[in-house]
Amino acid sequence: MRILVFGESGQVATELRHQAEVTALGRDLADLNDPDACAARVTAMDADVVINAAAYTAVDKAESEDELAHVVNGLAPAAMARAAAARGIPFLHISTDYVFSGTGAAPWVESDPVDPPNAYGRSKLAGEEGVRAAGGRHAILRTSWVFSSHGANFVKTMLRLSESRDTLNVVEDQIGGPTPAADIAAALLAMAKAMQAGHAGGTYHFGGTPWVSWADFAREIFAQAGRKMVVNGIPTTDYPTPAARPLNSRMDCTAIQNDFGISAPDWKAGLSKVLKDLGV
């Protein structure tokens, strides 16, 4: 299976390159600021399936760069999906729980109404809508709280801060599922294989289990890393950010289990592997 990946150095793109033989396009070869150029890559490349693992991910910055975020997260994947549809090949795209309002406590299912709380979420929703409108076989994988041994993420931030502090205040009223990038990549590859064989695809949720707060996630990081840190849980209101954050990022992963046999990943086991990779 010949796999074309948009993205090269991001967390999921890096894991895709580690786990499979793929053609990965970095910004020098595929600038998501230019949707037409991205579509042209899909048209020109000899691929059996396309995976978009590239995105504008600066959640707070998107509040002041909403047009740019919309181009990268909305228009570019839509253009890729149209080009893939024209060629008759599957297109897989990564999205986020941020397309939901983030209220309540029930885990989100794929059919729940969307209501993004910030510009980043709106840009990702535009991408979802564009991919579906392209009319080809596609899979949209909504995930959350991605972490790995590379790139910028919560795990690496916590480890860095623990080098110079012995106490941290971390938000405790936002609940979700930390998700190892390695497991996202493995899920995408399994879905790509199934879709090349004829699976229709669709929209799916894929987030780590068990659900946890950011504060408890931090506590587990320090426990596994053997670092003595006091984590004080604080409410979101005590940590204001330009972009509103969802309090509820829980996602129901039943559909992907039923349709592809892919289970929600154990994030604590994934964390152990990441810390080992980091030499912690």
Score class of each variant (00 low, 15 high):
I234A: 08
T57Y: 06
A84L: 09
D252Y: 00
A44K: 13
Y239A: 11
P107T: 01
H138A: 01
V22K: 07
G130H: 08
G127W: 10
S164F: 03
L271Q: 13
P235V: 02
S249G: 11
V42E: 07
A218R: 06
A187N: 10
L278N: 13
A106H: 04
A44H: 11
A37G: 14
E128Y: 12
N33C: 08
V50A: 03
A215F: 09
D266C: 13
D266V: 02
W145I: 02
A133V: 11
P242A: 04
P180F: 01
D173A: 10
G207F: 02
V59S: 02
K124Y: 10
L68E: 07
P113C: 08
V50F: 09
G202Q: 11
N33S: 15
F154N: 04
Y120T: 03
A223M: 09
E128R: 00
S9A: 11
A269C: 09
P235S: 10
G208E: 10
L271N: 08
Y98N: 10
F217C: 13
R165D: 04
L275P: 12
G104K: 09
D166I: 06
F154C: 02
L92S: 03
K61H: 07
S123H: 05
N248A: 01
A133K: 13
P178E: 00
I94R: 03
D48N: 12
G176S: 09
A182E: 14
F260K: 03
S149T: 09
N118K: 02
A186T: 13
H150M: 05
L25I: 10
L68W: 12
D46W: 05
I256S: 00
A83L: 01
Q224K: 13
P210F: 06
T43K: 14
A37W: 00
E8K: 09
A58N: 09
V99I: 15
T179V: 06
S263N: 15
G261S: 03
